[in-house]
Lab assay of single mutants.
Amino acid sequence: MDPFVVLVLCLSCLLLLSIWRQSSGRGKLPPGPTPLPVIGNILQIDIKDVSKSLTNLSKIYGPVFTLYFGLERMVVLHGYEVVKEALIDLGEEFSGRGHFPLAERANRGFGIVFSNGKRWKEIRRFSLMTLRNFGMGKRSIEDRVQEEARCLVEELRKTKASPCDPTFILGCAPCNVICSIIFQKRFDYKDQQFLNLMEKLNENIRIVSTPWIQICNNFPTIIDYFPGTHNKLLKNLAFMESDILEKVKEHQESMDINNPRDFIDCFLIKMEKEKQNQQSEFTIENLVITAADLLGAGTETTSTTLRYALLLLLKHPEVTAKVQEEIERVIGRNRSPCMQDRGHMPYTDAVVHEVQRYIDLIPTSLPHAVTCDVKFRNYLIPKGTTILTSLTSVLHDNKEFPNPEMFDPRHFLDEGGNFKKSNYFMPFSAGKRICVGEGLARMELFLFLTFILQNFNLKSLIDPKDLDTTPVVNGFASVPPFYQLCFIPV
Rank of each mutant, 00 (worst) to 15 (best):
L314Q: 06
L131K: 00
G228A: 05
R105K: 12
P174T: 14
I205F: 10
A369D: 03
T130N: 08
I45V: 07
Y80G: 04
E85T: 08
Y308V: 04
R105V: 08
I213W: 12
Q252R: 13
N202P: 04
Q146K: 11
R144I: 15
Y189G: 04
Q484P: 05
P409Y: 03
K158N: 15
F168E: 12
M136V: 13
R73A: 07
G137M: 13
D143E: 10
A292F: 08
C13Q: 04
E246V: 13
K118V: 12
S95W: 04
N259P: 04
F263S: 00
D408C: 07
D191A: 08
R132N: 15
P346L: 04
E104L: 10
R73T: 07
P404K: 00
C486L: 07
T371R: 09
T469S: 13
P317K: 08
I47Q: 12
Q356S: 09
S429W: 01
F114I: 06
T229G: 10
R157S: 11
D243A: 15
E438P: 03
Y68R: 12
F100P: 05
I387A: 03
R132E: 14
D224C: 05
A369M: 14
C435E: 01
E246D: 10
V370E: 00
H316A: 07
I269F: 07
E325F: 08
T364A: 12
F239K: 15
C435R: 00
L77I: 10
I289L: 12
A149S: 06
F168D: 13
K84P: 03
E72G: 06
N259I: 06
L11P: 00
D360N: 14
G475P: 09
L87I: 07
I223E: 05
N217Y: 13
F126H: 09
T167P: 00
V288D: 02
T167N: 15
A350P: 01
D408W: 04
I207F: 09
T299F: 08
V436Q: 02
D89E: 15
Q22Y: 15
D397L: 01
N217C: 15
V351F: 12
G32D: 00
V370F: 02
L361S: 05
P260I: 06
T389K: 01
S422E: 01
L311E: 02
R342K: 13
D265Q: 02
D46F: 04
P63Q: 09
Q276G: 14
D468M: 11
F446K: 03
F168M: 14
N56M: 13
L90K: 13
W120V: 03
F183L: 08
S115I: 03
A309S: 10
S478A: 00
L311I: 09
L233A: 07
T305R: 02
V319W: 10
G62F: 00
D414K: 06
F126K: 00
R132Q: 15
D191S: 09
I60T: 14
L9V: 11
N277K: 12
V153C: 10
R433Q: 03
G25S: 12
E154M: 10
V355E: 00
E274D: 12
K185H: 10
L361A: 12
T229S: 15
I19S: 10
T290C: 10
D46A: 07
F183M: 09
T66L: 07
K432W: 09
S393Y: 01
T450D: 04
K432L: 09
N204I: 09
T320W: 06
D143Y: 09
K121F: 09
F100N: 15
G70I: 02
A309L: 07
C266E: 15
K185C: 10
K48M: 12
L388W: 10
K375Q: 12
P481N: 09
E241M: 11
T450Y: 00
N202Y: 10
C172K: 11
V352Q: 01
G111D: 03
N41R: 00
E274C: 10
Q276A: 14
I19F: 13
S162Y: 11
S127G: 08
G475R: 14
N259G: 07
H316Y: 14
A103G: 11
M198K: 07
H368P: 01
R105N: 05
D373V: 02
V83M: 14
Q193C: 11
T371I: 08
G117R: 05
E72I: 02
V113H: 05
L395D: 03
K275L: 08
G62T: 00
Q279T: 13
E93R: 07
E81Q: 15
F110P: 03
V436P: 08
E81P: 10
V64E: 01
S209W: 08
L312F: 05
D224H: 08
N231M: 10
G431I: 02
A173T: 04
L67S: 02
C179L: 10
C372P: 00
Y80L: 04
T210N: 14
G296R: 14
S115H: 03
R410C: 11
A292V: 15
C266A: 14
K84W: 07
N378M: 04
M406K: 10
N231Y: 04
Y61V: 00
L234H: 06
V436C: 08
R144G: 08
F412E: 00
A430C: 13
D341V: 04
T392V: 03
R206Q: 14
N474M: 12
E203D: 12
E318I: 08
E155Q: 11
N176R: 04
A350G: 04
V83Y: 04
F407T: 00
R139D: 14
V177S: 03
F282S: 02
I244Q: 02
T389A: 08
A86M: 02
V472G: 08
R21M: 12
H344V: 08
T389C: 15
C13W: 10
Y379E: 00
S115Y: 02
P404H: 06
L14H: 01
R26H: 13
L310T: 05
V355N: 00
P367Y: 05
I434W: 06
M129N: 15
S429L: 03
K52L: 08
V82I: 09
R410N: 15
V6S: 11
L440A: 04
A238S: 14
N277D: 12
N398E: 14
P382L: 04
C13S: 14
L9D: 00
R377D: 04
P163A: 13
S12H: 09
E272P: 04
F451A: 13
E250D: 13
H353E: 01
F239Q: 13
L29C: 08
F69I: 11
T167I: 06
Q356L: 12
K322V: 09
L57I: 10
S23P: 13
N258Y: 13
Y189F: 07
K465N: 13
T302Q: 06
P427W: 01
N231E: 09
N133V: 07
E122H: 08
P174S: 14
V113Y: 07
D188I: 06
N258D: 14
F282E: 01
P481M: 10
E444A: 03
H251A: 05
I269R: 11
R410S: 14
I359W: 03
N116T: 10
E318R: 10
P367I: 04
C172V: 08
L29Q: 08
Q356V: 08
L15Q: 05
T130A: 11
P30M: 04
N107E: 05
F487T: 03
G228Y: 08
C10D: 00
V351P: 00
S12A: 12
T320G: 09
S127L: 15
T130R: 10
R206I: 07
N202K: 14
I205N: 14
E250L: 09
L366R: 04
M129L: 12
F428C: 04
D49S: 09
K235H: 10
H251W: 00
G228N: 05
E203A: 09
P481V: 07
T210I: 06
S365Q: 02
N176P: 01
N231K: 14
S95E: 14
L90Q: 15
N418R: 12
N418W: 07
L29A: 07
G416R: 15
H396I: 03
P3S: 10
I264Q: 00
T469E: 14
P402R: 12
V436R: 00
G417L: 09
Y358N: 05
N176V: 00
V8Y: 08
R97A: 03
E122C: 11
A161H: 09
C216A: 11
L195E: 13
